[in-house]
């Protein structure tokens, strides 16, 4: 049996008197596409934040390729190939689309001065590859629509070839057309990079088509972990209604 890419052991998180996660154990293998589903407040985002270094993981542990890791912050997690597209999209409105794509991983010379032309060229190539209009590149992010912002956030992960990509409610508040575009992009990402995707959602209908495994959370715990081949949409929906 191959070593899992990511393993979470006995993870518990408390916010004051509120227990957000209780003894969560989860194994994620390479090239899986997992739907992490549950109602609001189930602990999905908290679990994600722990894995990507935005929250501490003690008590509990996270292992990458069998080795325990402690991320000092999201930057360290990104260096390990773990990216997250947060629901709030973690984008800076006052910067351009190109600047947002490269923020934190700028193309620079040895003195730290950015090569703006190279960054723009790389972004243009990326957008051409993904079928995204080039006119978006120089726009300040605040003037992009919700769907465009989501696409910018996804294209970051696409460019930096994340090994493990968490998507926190990626389709929320998008029009049908934009949802379709984002799902196409995700499928392309999955096919081109053989990356592992964890798609967090409270809406099963959005995730069922793309995912091949479902982890259901409720009140800070994992209550079901099942392969798509073992359960139908109707059965899974019924299970979620019952918890």
């Amino acid at each position: 049996m191959t070593t899992p890419f990511l393993e979470i052991r006995d993870l518990s998180v408390q916010f004051g008197a509120v227990t957000a996660l209780t003894n969560v154990n989860l194994v994620i293998r390479e090239c899986e596409t997992i739907g992490l589903i549950g109602s609001n407040g189930a602990g999905k985002t908290t679990l994600t934040k722990c894995v990507v270094g935005a929250l501490p993981t003690e008590p509990g542990s996270v292992l990458i390729d069998g080795h325990p890791v402690t991320f000092s912050g999201p930057g360290a997690a990104r260096s390990a190939g773990i990216e997250c597209v947060f629901q709030t999209q973690a984008l800076v409105d006052d910067l351009s689309v190109v600047q947002n794509i490269f923020l934190g991983r700028e193309l620079c010379n040895s003195l730290g001065f950015m090569n703006a032309r190279a960054m723009r060229q790389e972004a243009r190539k990326l957008f051409a590859q993904l079928g995204i209009p080039e006119e978006l590149l120089d726009r300040e992010l605040r003037y992009c629509s919700g769907g465009e912002r989501q696409i910018v956030a996804l294209s970051k992960a696409f460019y930096f070839k994340a090994r493990l990509l968490f998507l926190d409610e990626p389709l929320t508040a998008l029009s049908v057309q934009k949802k379709h575009a984002v799902l196409e992009l995700l499928q392309k990402f999955k096919d081109d990079h053989r990356s592992t995707i964890v798609m967090i959602s409270h809406d099963l209908s959005e995730t069922y088509a793309l995912c091949d495994r479902f982890v259901v959370m409720n009140r800070g715990s994992i209550v079901r972990d099942v392969q798509k081949s073992e359960i139908s949409f109707a059965e899974l929906e019924q299970f979620m209604r019952g918890i």
Binding site: V52, A54, G73, P74, G75, A76, A77, R78, C84, F86, T88, Q89, A90, L91, V92, D93, D94, L95, Q99, L103, G104, E106, M114
Partner: peptide, 19 residues
């Protein structure tokens, strides 16, 4: 660039690995 990002949206900057 990181300075301006941190000033504009500290929460987003943190999630991008900037302190």
């Amino acid at each position: 660039l990181r300075f301006r990002a941190a000033g504009s949206n500290p929460a987003a900057a943190f999630l991008m690995g900037i302190a």
